[in-house]
Design a binder for these strands. Structure first.
Lengths: 338, 338
DNA sequence: TTGAAAGCGCTACCAC
DNA sequence: GTGGTAGCGCTTTCAA
């Protein structure tokens, strides 16, 4: 085909100086021969790995499993669109730092996403030291202005949800939260408490739980609380999975969700747990975690393209959507008792 | 430090000819300087990408989301242990072939895993043509002997589950299956039908559904069937998520699961949907999809290490575990009616 | 046991 | 608009 490697490279990479005719010929040939530049060689030559790393310590995975994948899927689409690969490392919690060090020293990725920031988060310090660009899914307390992040307004979402319940007359509201050493859960709790405080109420520790958001967690706590001395009339729940458990627990107590007991849950808009339709099953605060993934990826790619840009962030509000699981507090005399 | 690049490379890669003393010095220095060989350069030099690709078309992702991540997590652990990276590509269904072609032509991965084989699967043909080693999670009908795969015995699991229900006296058994154009669901249906046939019964199409395994799918169909003319006394369900929906539907009809209506579900042993304890909530056929991921990865890495080896496979039986959701068929006179 | 040097397959710079 | 060539940072012969 009588063309130098140089020209072929330029043609395939869309350099402007190549003549249209040459480009056409090259493209045609490449197509015919099934040729595409070896990505390792290109990466070595350019010094960019064209990959983004996601380090998943087992502990995060255990609890955030379905939410995490939805985020990944969103991010993955953005990467594909921009010619980036996604590298996933599943590691023991003890090896998380190592994983980041390796990514940096072996140049395995051009940037990483931090998942599930904790209240005492430290990963960002390491990444800064390693000079590895990153975006946080969530926020790192105290480092908001010096890091790029994408987060939903957890505090406000739970404050609004609590206010909705208060407006319906509920005052005994239970909070089934995620693990509160995680930033998102911590903020949700604050929103809950702020709303109560706004009405001059103070939270009852007997009605507050913090744990992995499994289905049995919802069920067992709902049953235990409803059978207690001064049961709640409403539940505020941190995930659909647990909310389903709460609904089951309510049923086990012979009560009816949305009538005897209200539920509001946060809904990450996971595809296998649809909560939509004309009137969704659960009243919820909804925020698409998949969309968050797309946006986080965009932020990170922009950072990589322009390393000198200032940190950028995206703060999203959840929608508050009325479903079938909320209603006015039952008047005391009608109030069903298990 | 006065050592050639050659020696450093050998020391770091564990070549036997390096003296213990030299190796120690190299390791120490590397540690001190935070040095690790650039993976792109190494890949280029060795010709192996040391990565395994997972191509996720959106459609698979939509329905298999949580199950898929659990598999990935298992595989990821195996990869880490063997120094391999995991590359995830989330693509439009229309670009799936392209994704595989790119992995092959650009040498992005040394092998791939095929997820969610369909009844009319064709991906393996492409991969053979591309000369890209692969392992199937599930089985490709008609290509069992010429491909490496790992699968649970779906047919037998559902046959055993059905037999258990039959032994309990149930004859009106509903099947809420996954999408039957997928191989796993197809086999589960066969198991169900085989068991019925073994007792001289034939399946009632009015009691059989095939769809994405969401929670509402379980609930809506349970309600519709239970309100029908000749309602089922038991449900056989393809996923925990849908089974939870079935339980909700049963509750909505004023019936009690495990007493008025029995449920057996398949349980992939997902961490956020624990179904264990002394007596699990759901009677189930259980098979850890995470374990499957680990094993699939091992098969694939072995294939890559020895390209001439014959295809190997792993066929696992699910456990049949008795929980609280099954009981003898209610005698007709006592049988609760919605 | 160690070192020198030739690639691996590209991109990017500098000529033409 | 096109081509020659020098790396990119390793691994891997081949020699010593």
């Amino acid at each position: 085909m009588n063309l130098s490697q140089t020209t072929v490279s330029r043609a395939l990479n869309g350099y402007p100086e190549v003549s249209a005719e040459t480009r056409r010929r090259v493209a045609e040939m490449a197509d015919k021969l099934g040729y595409a530049p070896n990505s390792q060689a290109r990466r070595l030559a350019t010094g960019r790995s064209m990959a983004i790393g996601h380090v998943i310590p087992r502990s995060i995975h255990e609890m955030m499993n379905p939410i995490f994948l939805e985020f990944i899927a969103g991010a993955g689409e953005t990467y594909s669109r921009h010619g980036y690969d996604m590298m996933l490392s599943v590691v023991d919690d003890a090896h998380e730092e190592d994983a980041y060090r390796q990514i940096a020293s072996r140049k395995k990725a051009d940037g990483v996403i931090i998942h599930g920031p904790a209240n005492d988060e430290r990963r960002h310090l390491l990444l800064k030291k390693l000079n590895l660009p990153f975006v946080v899914h969530g926020r790192i307390p105290g480092a908001e202005s010096e890091t790029s992040w994408i987060d939903m307004n957890n505090r406000r979402a739970f404050e609004r949800a609590t206010n909705l319940l208060l407006d319906l007359g509920h005052t005994r509201i239970a909070l089934l939260n995620g693990l509160e050493h995680m930033d998102f859960a911590h903020r949700r709790r604050r929103g809950f408490e702020d709303a109560l405080a706004g009405r001059g109420l103070s939270p009852d520790p007997a009605l507050m739980r913090s744990a992995d958001m499994t289905e049995p967690y919802g069920c067992e706590n709902a049953v235990a609380m409803l059978k207690g001395d001064d049961p709640p009339t409403a539940f505020l729940v941190s995930s659909m999975i647990s909310a389903i458990g709460v609904a089951r627990g309510i049923g086990q107590c012979g009560l009816k969700a949305g009538k005897d007991v209200s539920i509001i849950t946060h809904d990450d808009a996971l595809s296998f747990l649809p909560n939509c339709g004309e009137v969704p099953i659960f009243t919820c605060t909804r925020s698409s975690v998949r969309y968050a993934g797309e946006k986080a990826a965009e932020l990170l790619l922009a950072m990589i393209a322009d390393p000198d840009a200032k940190p950028a962030s995206l703060h999203m509000d959840a929608e508050l959507i009325i479903g079938q699981s909320t209603g006015p507090v039952p008047s005391p005399q009608n109030q069903a008792r298990p």
